[in-house]
């Protein structure tokens, strides 16, 4: 079948402003949209820029806006689209070229929440014990692939006046460590998250949860962080 791809184009070396270009691709219904993008670059226009690596939703390279909704083209099949698909770079981040955005600020926010296990007690000779229930608490959050679809889709991150919000992706990783029964850094974590651009920046708009390619209950986990902060500040007598 033929599929029309309307693609956002911008090359900082020659374009004053972005434009859209339409390509026709001959595709099988079970092809991935990523396969179509590759076919365009390999057969029609070598200058088309987009990131990719594993091509099956694990590496998180190819986040972009597909018909207005952030997602991974390696997870989308041709058969699920009508004649035309609109492909644009993720919002929130600066466009470098075509579908490639600058993710450095994304990783800076990620880094700001201390994304590592904090412990004070020296480790035992063998593993630190953790109950299967405590591990289950983390189970969905450790699926995160840092594709940035959630942060790019968040209306708070999109709005100029609240763009300093740390964003849902960083908060998922904050959840993953805050709720890890082995972690002993609660206090400093809470200090990092307890402000208007931290967990409280979230206004429960659910966009992150809707777009997450790994089906992580992002909004819910941010809610659990907020509750943990509240409980830490209002200990039960």
């Amino acid at each position: 079948m033929g599929l029309k791809l309307k693609i956002f184009r911008f090359d900082p070396q020659k374009d004053e402003k972005p434009y859209y270009q339409t390509f026709m691709v001959d595709a099988q219904p079970t092809d991935r949209l990523l396969d179509c993008l590759n076919r365009i670059r390999w057969e029609q226009d070598a200058t088309l820029a987009f990131r990719m690596s594993c091509a099956h939703g694990i590496c998180g390279s190819d986040g972009m806006r597909i018909n207005g909704i952030c997602g991974l083209p390696c997870q989308k099949l041709v058969k699920d689209f009508q004649e035309e698909v609109l492909l644009e770079p993720m919002p929130v981040f600066k466009v470098i070229k075509d579908l490639v955005v600058d993710l450095d600020p994304f990783f800076e926010e990620y880094n700001s929440i201390k994304p590592y296990l904090i412990t004070r007690t020296p480790p035992p000779e063998r593993e630190r014990k953790q109950s299967p229930e405590d591990h289950t608490t983390l189970e969905t959050s450790i699926r995160c692939i840092l594709c940035a679809c959630c942060t790019a889709s968040c209306p708070i991150n999109q709005k100029e006046e609240t763009k300093d919000y740390v964003g849902p992706a960083a908060l998922v990783r904050a959840f993953r460590y805050l709720f890890d029964s082995r972690d002993e850094g609660s206090e400093e974590r809470i200090a990092l998250l307890d402000h208007k651009d931290g967990a409280w920046g979230c206004q429960t708009l659910w966009k992150c949860t809707e777009v997450c390619p790994k089906k992580i209950p992002v909004t819910k986990q941010i809610g659990q962080i907020k509750r943990r902060i509240y409980e830490a500040k209002h200990p039960q007598k």
Binding site: L117, E127, K129, S131, P132, H135, R176, Y177, D180
Partner: peptide, 19 residues
């Protein structure tokens, strides 16, 4: 493996809480 676990790798667990 224990070193990875100490760094924070979230391994699945046995009923006794081991890796």
């Amino acid at each position: 493996i224990y070193e990875l676990e100490h760094m924070g790798v979230p391994f699945s667990r046995t009923a006794e809480g081991k890796i």
